[in-house]
């Protein structure tokens, strides 16, 4: 019987090694695998290359991992979001490397990595400093830049529900980078809010088929994940 469930997050991330490349899903708080990232902080692997849209916030999750000095390089589109102070501090001290990628190019590079595609041409970035030095060619009358695929040793994602086969489903805006990142690493680890028996998830609601997933851990949500005061601030 296939059983991809793992009892604890620390067990799930035990094999992450120094120098590993790790994708971390999520956008805003929805879909952030904070419990796995917290376990990785305790696990101790260092010199990591992290691929994630943002640089985390404050001193927990990815922000905490960066603050602990464990990330050598970040591949991201928006590492300067409010609260990403750990990254900003290290970046200004020259202690962390940044590969800045337009968001649509970032997700497509991950998609290409997971889909076995050797790269792609996109108009995004042509003529800007983010495409400087990259190969370009004119396709259908428009100049486009060659972008390479991204692939990782480990992917950490969060889903809403999962089963022992690794089938995953996401609520609302939790999906974001998660199902694409789930295709693009040697080892894919998912934390889920609910672990359900096989056959429970409706066929059409499985966004990530279990074939992509190596480990599933049931977690309680990280207490910092839900910060409704932001919405209130914005309304003023």
């Amino acid at each position: 019987m296939i059983d991809k469930t793992v009892a604890t997050c620390s067990e799930a991330v035990a094999k992450v090694f120094d120098g590993a490349t790790i994708m971390v899903g999520g956008f805003g708080s929805p879909g952030i695998p904070s419990m796995l990232v917290e376990a990785l902080r305790k696990q101790g692997a260092k010199n990591l290359v992290v691929i994630s849209n943002n640089a985390g916030s404050d001193d927990w999750g990815l922000g905490g991992l960066i603050q602990d000095g464990r990330v050598r390089k970040l591949v991201a589109s928006f590492p300067n979001s409010p609260g990403a102070d750990a990254f900003k501090d290290l970046y200004m001290k020259g202690e962390i490397e940044l590969e800045l990628v337009p968001q649509g190019t970032l997700i497509e590079r991950i998609r290409a990595g997971g889909a076995g595609i050797g790269g792609f041409y996109t108009p995004t970035g042509v003529g800007t400093e983010l495409a400087a030095g990259k190969e370009t060619r004119v396709i259908n009358g428009r100049e486009q830049v060659l972008e390479s695929p991204l692939y990782a040793d480990f992917t950490l994602i969060k889903a809403y529900r999962g089963d022992r086969l690794g089938n995953l489903t996401y609520r609302l805006a939790m999906r974001n980078f998660n199902p694409i990142m789930a295709t693009a690493a040697d080892v894919v680890i998912a934390e889920v809010d609910e672990l359900v028996p096989v056959g429970t998830l409706g066929l059409e609601e499985i966004h990530t088929p279990g074939i992509f997933v190596d480990a599933v851990v049931k977690v309680e949500r990280h207490p910092r994940l839900f910060e409704p005061q932001r919405a209130r601030r914005a309304k003023k």
């Binding site: 928006f78 337009p102 968001q103």
Partner: peptide, 20 residues
């Protein structure tokens, strides 16, 4: 997307929108 001299850059989806 970027002011010269800005210490930490971020682009998000700005370029994808502008090109697309």
């Amino acid at each position: 997307w970027r002011v010269p001299g800005e210490k930490v850059p971020g682009v998000g989806g700005a370029m994808d929108l502008a090109f697309g």
